Simulated assay, not measured.
Amino acid sequence: MAKIYSKRKLAKKTMLPKKETIRLILQYSCALNIIKIGNMSFETLAN
């Protein structure tokens, strides 16, 4: 059985995100606001 697994090569696939995914992450990061007061931090989402 070891011979079967050694013959297979792992295929490298370059995975690229969709434009919608990038847009969602950028919109979320723009809407996220982190306020630090002392040693505490508060996260607010402006949506």
Rank of each mutant, 00 (worst) to 15 (best):
M1L: 03
I37R: 13
K7R: 12
L16S: 11
R23I: 01
M40N: 13
R23Q: 08
N47S: 12
I35G: 04
Y28Q: 09
G38V: 05
E43F: 07
T14I: 10
S41Y: 10
I4P: 00
S41D: 01
Y5C: 12
K19G: 00
A31S: 11
S29W: 00
Y28W: 12
I4K: 01
A31K: 13
Q27W: 03
K19R: 08
I34C: 11
F42D: 01
M15A: 09
N39F: 10
K36W: 07
Y28P: 03
K18C: 01
S29L: 05
L10N: 15
N33M: 09
K9A: 10
K12D: 02
K13C: 07
I35R: 13
G38S: 06
K19Y: 00
E43R: 04
L26M: 08
L16H: 01
S29N: 08
A11C: 10
C30N: 14
K18V: 00
I4R: 05
I4V: 07
L24G: 05
I22A: 14
C30M: 08
T14G: 02
I35Q: 14
N47R: 07
A46G: 08
R23K: 15
L10G: 15
L45E: 06
L24D: 13
A46L: 13
N39L: 08
S6A: 03
T21P: 02
Y28H: 09
A31Q: 09
S41L: 03
A31V: 02
L26W: 03
I35D: 13
G38F: 02
T44Y: 03
E20N: 06
I34D: 02
A2Y: 10
S6K: 00
E20R: 06
L26D: 09
K36C: 07
I35L: 14
K12Y: 04
K36S: 06
Q27A: 04
Q27Y: 02
M15I: 15
L16Q: 08
R8I: 12
I34R: 10
G38I: 03
N39S: 13
F42K: 11
I25Y: 09
L24F: 13
L32V: 08
I22S: 10
L32W: 03
L16D: 04
L24R: 15
E43I: 07
I22N: 06
C30K: 15
K9N: 14
N33P: 04
M1V: 05
A46H: 14
G38A: 06
K19Q: 05
I34G: 02
I34M: 14
I25C: 06
P17L: 05
M15Y: 07
M40A: 09
A11P: 02
Y28M: 10
R8M: 13
K18Q: 04
R23F: 02
I35A: 12
K3S: 06
A11Y: 05
C30A: 11
I22T: 15
N39R: 09
T21Q: 12
L32I: 09
I34Q: 07
A31H: 04
R8W: 12
T14Y: 00
I25F: 12
K7D: 14
N33V: 11
C30I: 03
I4G: 01
F42N: 00
M1Y: 03
A2R: 07
E43V: 08
S6R: 01
Q27P: 03
N33L: 08
M40V: 08
K12T: 03
N33A: 10
L45V: 09
N47L: 10
Y5G: 11
K12P: 00
Y28C: 07
I34L: 14
